[in-house]
């Protein structure tokens, strides 16, 4: 089987998603045998504009990044967005809540005119994204699953059901019973219920499922004495850029 040429790119983000690929350790050698990595922002010095698959981390927050992502889109036949920033804008979107000018003022003060900073958006606002590896950080095994599926030519199985399913498979006690609030019932699984496994609530870093029962979640949180502001704060941590999920947006 021919090895596809792959570029791994970092936009606005912490670099943790690329690090997750490096963290594959046991699978890394198999990975570089299965694909030819021609560009890897965080890991190799060489640069190439010749790739078929682009794996993109980070959100778009500068004019320069718009140019970069458009160029990537022109070259790559397939784009895989990895991590909350690339998929939904992620934490960076919190900037938008202040308004661009206010945010620039707060951070850059009198230098703000010199800084190239625009409203934060996810990657798919500018180019068509084929697959999403959600989460903060993304599940590295899911990234492998997407790559593997691309090589063998099948659709990767990305869960579109709530975290509760994985949480119950793992035999966890519901964190609500322990007095902790959790967005699990409306949030996308695929993380193997990482946070509830360590007895903390889900913060929806993989976004919300396609058909969430938001009203039920509001009722539930209210029952635990939380105000609408608290609820919004929880939703906003990773999902300030959009009230809707990607799939709903595309419909």
């Amino acid at each position: 089987m021919r090895k596809p040429k792959v570029g791994i790119f970092g936009l606005t983000g912490c670099g943790g998603c690329q690090l997750e690929i490096l963290n594959l350790e046991d699978q890394l050698l198999d990975l570089v045998n299965a694909i030819e990595i021609v560009h890897f922002t965080e890991a190799i010095t060489e640069y190439s504009d010749n790739y078929e698959i682009a794996i993109v981390e980070g959100s778009i927050s500068t004019m320069h990044e718009i140019e970069r992502i458009k160029k990537i889109g022109d070259i790559a036949g397939t784009i895989v967005a990895i991590g909350a920033c690339a998929v939904s804008g992620g934490l960076n979107c919190l900037k938008n809540l202040y308004g661009l000018e206010k945010a620039k003022e707060l951070v850059y003060r009198d230098k703000k005119k010199l800084i190239d900073s625009i409203e934060v958006k996810p990657v798919d606002e500018y180019v068509k994204v084929d697959y999403y590896a959600r989460g903060c950080p993304p599940n590295r095994f899911e990234i492998v699953d997407i790559i593997r599926s691309l090589i063998v030519g099948k659709k990767p199985e990305i869960p579109n059901y709530p975290v509760c399913i994985e949480c119950k498979r793992n035999g966890n006690t519901c964190v609500y019973e322990l007095g902790i609030t959790c967005l699990g019932p409306i949030s996308r699984a695929g993380c193997n219920s990482r946070c509830p496994n360590s007895v903390s609530g889900c913060e929806a870093c993989r976004g919300v499922i396609d058909d969430p029962n938001i009203n039920a979640q509001k009722d539930l949180l209210k029952e635990y004495g939380l105000t609408v502001e608290d609820i919004l704060k929880e939703f906003n941590l990773y999902n300030a850029c959009r009230g809707k999920t990607i799939e709903q947006k595309n419909k």
Binding site: D30, N33, V144, I147, V152, Y161, C164, I165, P185, I186
Partner: peptide
Amino acid sequence: NCYSCGSCNLVCPTCFCFNIKDDIELNL
């Protein structure tokens, strides 16, 4: 108010439905 979260199924002593996943190694 159903979340469609599946908790009822996964804690049930009689639910038997399963999904089968195919995991091929990267070495193919």
